[in-house]
Amino acid sequence: MADKIRIATASLAGCFGCHMSLLDIDERLIDLVAHIEFDRTPLTDIKQIGRCDVGLIEGGVCNAENVEVLKAFRRHCNLLVAVGACAINGGIPAMRNQYSLTECLEEAYLHGSGIDQPQIPSDPELPLLLDQVHPIHDVVWIDYFLPGCPPSADTIFTFLDELLSGKPIRFAYRQIHYD
């Protein structure tokens, strides 16, 4: 292995569960860090993405900022991977697609229980919500998909390990699940 491969990660409309699963690789992380260095990721707190070999995206696309981050990842990453159910099909956040955005906001901020001073947030710093939550392949080309809610640490490790070794990526039966 010549140079280390450079990896960036982001959580869009996700719960950080997939990032937790990445950390759940446990002591095998020590083997991995010999071959990997991180670029922009919540783990390094680097804010701007640089040129990367691999981008791992958790979560679907629910607002304008998600779109911007996702497009920046696509521009900078040779290989972009959808990690987890939300990135792949919108997941739990996409269950709001059953309702209009107005209905969702009114339920959350006006008519829900225990609301003090009901008002729908409107601040220039808040990213605008999209009318629906989208899987990330609706917005940019995705090269690979790792299903699961979250994908197990084993699945993520197998993916990175086989990618690093240049082998075809193959999973054991139990490593692929959609839940």
């Binding site: 959808a82 792949i88 099909n89 919108g90 996409a94 697609n97 059953q98 629906q132 989208h134 899987p135 392949h137 609706d138 690979y144 998909f145 790792l146 299903p147 039966y173 692929i176 699940h177 959609y178 839940d179």
Partner: peptide, 18 residues
């Protein structure tokens, strides 16, 4: 789900109808 696992489907990939 089970048939999709058997056939090696990783993701639906098309535009979702919702």
């Amino acid at each position: 789900q089970a048939v999709a696992y058997h056939c090696g489907m990783l993701a639906p990939e098309f535009v979702h109808f919702y």
